[in-house]
Amino acid sequence: MRKNKMATLGAFIVIAIVIIGILAPIISPYDPNAQDLYNSLEGPSLKHPFGVDLYGRDILSRVIWGARISLSISFTAVLLSGMLGIMLGAIAGYFGGIIDEIIMRIFDMLLSFPDILLAIAIVAILGPGKLNLILALTIYSLPQFARITRGSVISEKNNEYVDAARLMGENDISILFRYILPNCISPIIVQGTMRMATAILVISGLGFLGLGIQPPTPEWGTDLSVARTYLRVAPHMGIFPGLAIFITVMGFNFFGDGLNDALNPRLKDR
Protein backbone atom coordinates (compact mmCIF):
# COMPACT_ATOMS: atom_id res chain seq x y z
CA MET A 1 0.00 0.00 0.00
CA ARG A 2 2.78 2.40 0.98
CA LYS A 3 4.70 1.37 -2.07
CA ASN A 4 1.72 2.04 -4.27
CA LYS A 5 1.53 5.61 -3.02
CA MET A 6 5.21 6.11 -3.74
CA ALA A 7 4.71 4.90 -7.29
CA THR A 8 1.84 7.32 -7.78
CA LEU A 9 3.96 10.11 -6.38
CA GLY A 10 6.77 9.07 -8.74
CA ALA A 11 4.46 9.08 -11.74
CA PHE A 12 3.14 12.49 -10.70
CA ILE A 13 6.66 13.93 -10.40
CA VAL A 14 7.76 12.47 -13.73
CA ILE A 15 4.73 13.82 -15.55
CA ALA A 16 5.13 17.23 -13.91
CA ILE A 17 8.84 17.47 -14.82
CA VAL A 18 8.18 16.39 -18.39
CA ILE A 19 5.46 19.02 -18.76
CA ILE A 20 7.74 21.67 -17.25
CA GLY A 21 10.50 20.68 -19.65
CA ILE A 22 8.25 20.78 -22.70
CA LEU A 23 6.59 24.05 -21.76
CA ALA A 24 9.80 25.75 -20.60
CA PRO A 25 9.67 28.60 -23.18
CA ILE A 26 6.10 29.41 -22.15
CA ILE A 27 6.16 29.04 -18.40
CA SER A 28 9.59 30.36 -17.49
CA PRO A 29 9.07 33.95 -16.22
CA TYR A 30 12.36 35.32 -17.56
CA ASP A 31 14.95 34.56 -20.21
CA PRO A 32 17.31 32.16 -18.39
CA ASN A 33 20.33 34.00 -19.75
CA ALA A 34 19.13 37.59 -19.20
CA GLN A 35 21.57 39.26 -16.83
CA ASP A 36 20.77 41.88 -14.25
CA LEU A 37 24.06 42.71 -12.62
CA TYR A 38 22.57 45.37 -10.29
CA ASN A 39 20.69 42.71 -8.38
CA SER A 40 23.40 40.03 -8.39
CA LEU A 41 23.03 37.21 -5.79
CA GLU A 42 19.70 38.51 -4.51
CA GLY A 43 17.72 36.01 -2.43
CA PRO A 44 14.19 34.73 -3.14
CA SER A 45 11.56 37.41 -3.50
CA LEU A 46 8.13 37.78 -5.04
CA LYS A 47 9.70 38.93 -8.29
CA HIS A 48 12.22 36.07 -8.32
CA PRO A 49 10.78 33.19 -6.24
CA PHE A 50 14.06 31.20 -6.32
CA GLY A 51 16.28 34.31 -6.21
CA VAL A 52 18.90 35.33 -8.74
CA ASP A 53 22.45 34.15 -9.35
CA LEU A 54 25.83 35.82 -9.65
CA TYR A 55 24.92 37.56 -12.90
CA GLY A 56 21.41 38.39 -11.79
CA ARG A 57 19.80 35.60 -13.84
CA ASP A 58 16.49 34.31 -12.57
CA ILE A 59 17.12 30.90 -10.95
CA LEU A 60 13.53 29.69 -11.35
CA SER A 61 13.83 30.18 -15.11
CA ARG A 62 17.18 28.42 -15.18
CA VAL A 63 15.80 25.46 -13.19
CA ILE A 64 12.85 25.23 -15.60
CA TRP A 65 15.10 25.33 -18.67
CA GLY A 66 17.46 22.90 -16.95
CA ALA A 67 14.66 20.32 -16.88
CA ARG A 68 14.37 20.67 -20.65
CA ILE A 69 18.10 20.09 -21.18
CA SER A 70 18.42 17.18 -18.74
CA LEU A 71 15.32 15.41 -19.96
CA SER A 72 16.04 15.80 -23.67
CA ILE A 73 19.62 14.52 -23.34
CA SER A 74 18.79 11.64 -21.02
CA PHE A 75 15.74 10.64 -23.02
CA THR A 76 17.67 10.61 -26.32
CA ALA A 77 20.50 8.63 -24.73
CA VAL A 78 18.15 6.11 -23.08
CA LEU A 79 16.22 5.69 -26.32
CA LEU A 80 19.37 5.12 -28.36
CA SER A 81 21.01 2.76 -25.89
CA GLY A 82 17.66 1.04 -25.43
CA MET A 83 17.22 0.34 -29.12
CA LEU A 84 20.80 -0.82 -29.61
CA GLY A 85 20.99 -2.69 -26.32
CA ILE A 86 17.70 -4.50 -26.91
CA MET A 87 18.80 -5.54 -30.41
CA LEU A 88 22.20 -6.82 -29.29
CA GLY A 89 20.87 -8.45 -26.13
CA ALA A 90 18.05 -10.13 -28.04
CA ILE A 91 20.43 -11.49 -30.68
CA ALA A 92 22.83 -12.71 -28.00
CA GLY A 93 20.09 -14.40 -26.02
CA TYR A 94 18.26 -15.91 -28.96
CA PHE A 95 21.15 -17.31 -30.96
CA GLY A 96 23.42 -18.09 -28.02
CA GLY A 97 26.74 -19.80 -28.62
CA ILE A 98 29.66 -17.85 -29.95
CA ILE A 99 27.61 -14.74 -30.89
CA ASP A 100 26.37 -14.54 -27.33
CA GLU A 101 29.89 -14.94 -25.97
CA ILE A 102 31.32 -12.15 -28.11
CA ILE A 103 28.55 -9.61 -27.47
CA MET A 104 28.31 -10.26 -23.76
CA ARG A 105 32.09 -10.25 -23.14
CA ILE A 106 32.31 -6.80 -24.76
CA PHE A 107 29.55 -5.59 -22.47
CA ASP A 108 31.24 -7.18 -19.48
CA MET A 109 34.29 -5.08 -20.32
CA LEU A 110 32.16 -1.93 -20.35
CA LEU A 111 30.51 -2.96 -17.09
CA SER A 112 33.84 -3.39 -15.36
CA PHE A 113 34.29 0.41 -15.28
CA PRO A 114 32.86 2.00 -12.14
CA ASP A 115 29.59 3.80 -12.86
CA ILE A 116 30.37 7.40 -13.72
CA LEU A 117 34.02 6.79 -14.61
CA LEU A 118 33.14 5.39 -18.01
CA ALA A 119 31.10 8.47 -18.87
CA ILE A 120 33.89 10.73 -17.64
CA ALA A 121 36.45 8.85 -19.72
CA ILE A 122 34.35 9.06 -22.89
CA VAL A 123 33.66 12.77 -22.46
CA ALA A 124 37.31 13.39 -21.59
CA ILE A 125 38.35 11.76 -24.87
CA LEU A 126 35.68 13.34 -27.07
CA GLY A 127 35.49 16.70 -25.30
CA PRO A 128 32.43 18.23 -23.66
CA GLY A 129 29.30 19.07 -25.61
CA LYS A 130 25.71 17.98 -25.96
CA LEU A 131 26.30 15.39 -28.66
CA ASN A 132 29.29 13.81 -26.94
CA LEU A 133 27.32 13.71 -23.72
CA ILE A 134 24.54 11.79 -25.46
CA LEU A 135 27.09 9.41 -26.93
CA ALA A 136 28.76 8.85 -23.55
CA LEU A 137 25.44 8.17 -21.86
CA THR A 138 24.38 5.82 -24.63
CA ILE A 139 27.49 3.70 -24.30
CA TYR A 140 27.14 3.87 -20.54
CA SER A 141 23.59 2.47 -20.55
CA LEU A 142 24.02 -0.02 -23.37
CA PRO A 143 25.23 -3.04 -21.34
CA GLN A 144 22.34 -2.75 -18.86
CA PHE A 145 19.73 -2.96 -21.58
CA ALA A 146 21.55 -5.77 -23.34
CA ARG A 147 21.78 -7.84 -20.16
CA ILE A 148 18.15 -7.41 -19.16
CA THR A 149 16.95 -8.22 -22.67
CA ARG A 150 19.22 -11.22 -23.04
CA GLY A 151 18.02 -12.65 -19.75
CA SER A 152 14.34 -12.37 -20.59
CA VAL A 153 14.83 -13.62 -24.14
CA ILE A 154 16.56 -16.72 -22.82
CA SER A 155 13.72 -17.47 -20.43
CA GLU A 156 11.00 -16.74 -23.02
CA LYS A 157 12.49 -18.76 -25.85
CA ASN A 158 11.95 -22.01 -23.99
CA ASN A 159 8.19 -21.58 -24.15
CA GLU A 160 6.29 -23.94 -26.39
CA TYR A 161 4.73 -21.05 -28.32
CA VAL A 162 8.18 -20.49 -29.81
CA ASP A 163 8.27 -24.09 -31.04
CA ALA A 164 4.74 -23.72 -32.33
CA ALA A 165 5.72 -20.56 -34.21
CA ARG A 166 8.62 -22.40 -35.80
CA LEU A 167 6.25 -25.14 -36.91
CA MET A 168 4.08 -22.45 -38.50
CA GLY A 169 7.01 -21.65 -40.76
CA GLU A 170 8.07 -18.46 -38.95
CA ASN A 171 11.71 -17.53 -39.42
CA ASP A 172 14.13 -16.51 -36.66
CA ILE A 173 13.70 -12.77 -37.16
CA SER A 174 9.94 -13.06 -36.99
CA ILE A 175 10.03 -15.34 -33.95
CA LEU A 176 12.36 -12.96 -32.14
CA PHE A 177 10.49 -9.74 -32.92
CA ARG A 178 6.88 -10.91 -33.12
CA TYR A 179 6.85 -13.53 -30.42
CA ILE A 180 9.70 -13.28 -27.95
CA LEU A 181 10.44 -9.56 -27.60
CA PRO A 182 6.85 -8.44 -27.00
CA ASN A 183 6.84 -10.80 -24.03
CA CYS A 184 10.08 -9.32 -22.68
CA ILE A 185 8.98 -5.72 -22.80
CA SER A 186 8.00 -5.11 -19.18
CA PRO A 187 11.43 -5.51 -17.53
CA ILE A 188 12.89 -3.42 -20.35
CA ILE A 189 10.45 -0.56 -19.72
CA VAL A 190 11.28 -0.66 -16.02
CA GLN A 191 14.96 -0.62 -16.84
CA GLY A 192 14.42 2.35 -19.17
CA THR A 193 12.75 4.37 -16.42
CA MET A 194 15.52 3.58 -13.98
CA ARG A 195 18.14 4.47 -16.57
CA MET A 196 16.49 7.87 -17.02
CA ALA A 197 17.19 8.57 -13.36
CA THR A 198 20.83 7.51 -13.62
CA ALA A 199 21.32 9.42 -16.84
CA ILE A 200 20.02 12.63 -15.27
CA LEU A 201 22.34 12.05 -12.33
CA VAL A 202 25.32 11.50 -14.62
CA ILE A 203 24.50 14.58 -16.70
CA SER A 204 24.49 16.79 -13.62
CA GLY A 205 27.54 15.00 -12.23
CA LEU A 206 29.49 15.70 -15.38
CA GLY A 207 28.13 19.25 -15.42
CA PHE A 208 29.34 19.72 -11.87
CA LEU A 209 32.81 18.57 -12.89
CA GLY A 210 32.81 20.95 -15.85
CA LEU A 211 32.69 18.07 -18.34
CA GLY A 212 29.02 18.28 -19.25
CA ILE A 213 26.90 21.06 -20.67
CA GLN A 214 28.93 24.25 -20.78
CA PRO A 215 27.77 27.58 -19.41
CA PRO A 216 25.84 29.72 -20.08
CA THR A 217 23.37 26.98 -21.07
CA PRO A 218 21.17 26.40 -18.02
CA GLU A 219 21.94 22.96 -16.60
CA TRP A 220 21.39 21.86 -13.00
CA GLY A 221 24.82 20.32 -12.41
CA THR A 222 26.75 23.15 -14.01
CA ASP A 223 24.77 25.73 -12.04
CA LEU A 224 25.34 23.76 -8.86
CA SER A 225 29.06 23.80 -9.44
CA VAL A 226 29.07 27.61 -9.82
CA ALA A 227 26.89 27.93 -6.73
CA ARG A 228 29.40 26.03 -4.65
CA THR A 229 31.68 29.11 -4.47
CA TYR A 230 28.84 31.29 -3.18
CA LEU A 231 27.27 28.78 -0.84
CA ARG A 232 27.72 31.03 2.20
CA VAL A 233 26.51 34.33 0.73
CA ALA A 234 23.83 32.97 -1.59
CA PRO A 235 22.77 29.42 -0.61
CA HIS A 236 19.62 29.67 -2.76
CA MET A 237 21.86 29.49 -5.85
CA GLY A 238 22.70 25.88 -5.03
CA ILE A 239 19.61 24.74 -3.14
CA PHE A 240 17.15 25.02 -6.03
CA PRO A 241 19.11 23.27 -8.82
CA GLY A 242 20.10 20.64 -6.24
CA LEU A 243 16.49 20.12 -5.23
CA ALA A 244 15.53 19.83 -8.90
CA ILE A 245 18.06 17.01 -9.42
CA PHE A 246 16.98 15.28 -6.23
CA ILE A 247 13.25 15.42 -6.96
CA THR A 248 13.60 14.35 -10.60
CA VAL A 249 15.84 11.39 -9.86
CA MET A 250 13.65 10.32 -6.98
CA GLY A 251 10.56 10.64 -9.15
CA PHE A 252 11.97 8.40 -11.87
CA ASN A 253 13.15 5.84 -9.33
CA PHE A 254 9.78 5.66 -7.57
CA PHE A 255 8.04 5.45 -10.92
CA GLY A 256 10.36 2.65 -12.06
CA ASP A 257 9.79 0.72 -8.83
CA GLY A 258 6.07 1.12 -9.22
CA LEU A 259 6.15 -0.05 -12.83
CA ASN A 260 8.19 -3.05 -11.78
CA ASP A 261 5.55 -4.03 -9.24
CA ALA A 262 2.72 -3.40 -11.66
CA LEU A 263 4.26 -5.25 -14.61
CA ASN A 264 5.77 -8.13 -12.71
CA PRO A 265 2.91 -10.46 -11.76
CA ARG A 266 5.06 -12.42 -9.36
CA LEU A 267 5.52 -9.38 -7.12
CA LYS A 268 1.89 -8.32 -7.24
CA ASP A 269 0.79 -9.85 -3.97
CA ARG A 270 3.54 -8.42 -1.87
Partner: peptide, 18 residues
Amino acid sequence: RRELQMVFQDPFSSLNPR
Protein backbone atom coordinates in the same frame (compact mmCIF):
# COMPACT_ATOMS: atom_id res chain seq x y z
CA ARG B 1 6.17 -27.36 -42.12
CA ARG B 2 2.80 -27.15 -43.81
CA GLU B 3 2.44 -30.90 -43.75
CA LEU B 4 3.85 -31.67 -40.31
CA GLN B 5 2.30 -30.17 -37.22
CA MET B 6 2.33 -30.73 -33.50
CA VAL B 7 -0.03 -30.15 -30.59
CA PHE B 8 1.93 -29.44 -27.44
CA GLN B 9 1.48 -30.71 -23.95
CA ASP B 10 1.05 -27.48 -22.05
CA PRO B 11 -1.63 -25.17 -23.48
CA PHE B 12 -0.52 -22.49 -21.02
CA SER B 13 2.86 -22.15 -22.65
CA SER B 14 2.04 -23.05 -26.25
CA LEU B 15 0.01 -19.91 -27.04
CA ASN B 16 1.70 -16.52 -27.31
CA PRO B 17 0.11 -14.44 -24.54
CA ARG B 18 0.47 -11.25 -26.58
